[in-house]
Computed example of a mutant assay.
Amino acid sequence: MLTKEDLKRAREAHDQATAEADRIRENADQTRAEIFARAAAEGMPQKDMIEATGYSRETVRRVTRQGQDAAKESA
């Protein structure tokens, strides 16, 4: 029979796994934004970025802007 302690451990394991997944996602988002900002800085047209990724124009703008903002903060 399961105990309250079993449920507590399951909750802790879930919380830990969720936190790790969030860190991985944040890292992936940051890396993507840096690459988009670099592509824009090197003169790649937005149209080409859209075609290469399948993202909408607004998503390309948003991700590129995130990368550009992060680069400014680290400079």
Results as ranks from 00 to 15, higher is better:
M1S: 03
M1W: 06
K4T: 12
E5R: 13
E5H: 09
E5Q: 11
D6Y: 14
L7T: 15
K8S: 04
R9N: 06
R9F: 05
A10M: 13
A10K: 11
A10T: 12
A10F: 11
R11N: 14
R11V: 13
R11F: 11
E12L: 02
E12T: 03
A13E: 11
A13C: 00
H14Y: 15
H14M: 10
H14E: 15
D15A: 08
Q16G: 01
A17I: 10
A17L: 13
A17E: 14
T18W: 05
A19F: 04
A19Y: 04
A19Q: 02
E20G: 03
A21Y: 08
A21S: 11
D22Q: 10
R23N: 04
R23I: 12
I24F: 13
I24N: 09
R25S: 06
D29V: 07
T31N: 11
T31L: 08
T31R: 13
R32H: 05
R32P: 01
R32S: 05
A33P: 12
E34A: 01
I35C: 03
F36V: 05
F36S: 00
F36M: 05
F36I: 03
F36N: 02
A37D: 04
A37S: 02
R38F: 13
R38T: 15
A39W: 14
A39K: 10
A39G: 08
A40M: 07
A41E: 15
A41P: 09
E42C: 10
E42W: 13
E42K: 09
G43D: 01
M44A: 04
M44I: 12
M44R: 01
M44Y: 05
P45S: 00
P45F: 01
Q46T: 12
Q46K: 15
Q46H: 07
Q46S: 07
Q46M: 14
D48F: 01
M49W: 01
I50T: 05
I50M: 07
I50N: 03
E51A: 01
E51L: 02
E51P: 00
A52H: 04
T53K: 02
T53H: 07
T53V: 04
T53P: 00
G54K: 04
G54S: 04
Y55F: 15
Y55N: 08
Y55L: 15
S56D: 08
R57C: 08
R57K: 06
R57S: 14
E58A: 15
E58H: 12
T59F: 09
T59S: 15
T59M: 15
T59Y: 09
V60W: 14
V60C: 10
R61E: 15
R61F: 12
R62K: 15
R62E: 15
V63S: 10
T64Y: 03
Q66L: 10
G67A: 05
Q68T: 10
D69A: 09
A70D: 01
A70T: 06
A71N: 11
A71I: 06
E73W: 07
S74K: 03
S74L: 11
S74A: 07
A75H: 09
A75W: 06
A75K: 06
A75G: 00
A75E: 02
A75V: 11
